[in-house]
Design a protein around this nucleic acid. Structure first.
Length: 216
DNA sequence: CGCATTTGACCCGCGC
DNA sequence: GCGCGGGTCAAATGCG
């Protein structure tokens, strides 16, 4: 590396394999904090300035040695209040919170609202027995928009989406009053010809969450 | 002392 | 072939 110019022929083929074709999930989160807790522990391993955005992109890796999940976190240049989190890979373990005997998703959701819910969806798709999906989906309802965390904590429905599109309604109140609050919108994984529009419906969820995990 | 973050360099793929 | 942009590494540093 930079400090080892002498080591000429020292195995530099580690970077041979580029991006493996891992499943990727993008989440658009209305939050002022970049690093949203999702129940897992992440270690930052890099940060780069991106061309399209004035905000740097951060690279995180799951601290679990046998877990190769990575995630990129960047702010939307269009809407600084929106954090785009891209997950790559699948967790081969439960969340740190799980190990403590509590539903990590529930805890995370409890803390971060809808943000964790979307993540929980992803997570629930990976663990054998989904940690009570209904709880994850119902959670926002369990937490009615109190005066403090008055975020539109509804699941990514077309309604909330429209709100996000308009950039009104959900971003001000909650995000203003509670920094921790966030609204996450699950985005369609990269596909051949996907319009940049944020509009999606249940079809999107089908892409991300197997039907089995859903309330259906 | 151990772990997480920071930060600059390195490497690779892609477009021109 | 060259330059650019993106992704990763790892030493240095900070913090609990």
């Amino acid at each position: 590396r930079k400090c080892a110019p002498a080591a000429a022929a020292t195995a530099t083929a580690k970077k041979g394999q580029k991006r493996a074709r891992q499943p990727r999930f993008a989440f658009m989160t209305k939050s002022e904090i970049d690093h949203l807790e999702d129940g897992y522990r992440w270690r930052k391993y890099g940060q780069k300035a991106v061309k399209n955005s004035p905000f740097p992109r951060s690279y995180y890796r799951c601290t679990n040695s046998k877990c190769t999940v990575k995630k990129r976190v960047e702010r939307s240049s269009d809407d600084p209040s929106v954090v785009i989190t891209t997950y790559e890979g699948q967790h081969c373990h439960h969340t740190a919170s799980f190990q403590r005997g509590v539903g990590g998703a529930a805890v995370a959701a409890h803390i971060h609202g809808a943000a964790a819910v979307a993540l929980a969806e992803q997570m629930s798709a990976f663990v054998s027995p989904p940690p009570q999906p209904h709880m994850l989906y119902g959670l926002p309802r369990l937490h009615p928009p109190s005066s403090e965390t008055a975020v539109s904590c509804s699941m990514p429905t077309t309604t909330s989406l429209q709100e996000l599109n308009n950039g009104e309604g959900l971003q001000r109140p909650g995000y203003n009053n509670s920094p921790q609050a966030a609204v996450t919108i699950a985005q369609r994984p990269p596909s051949p010809s996907v319009p940049p529009a944020v509009s999606f419906d249940k079809g999107l969820l089908d892409d991300i969450v197997p039907p089995g995990v859903r309330l259906g």
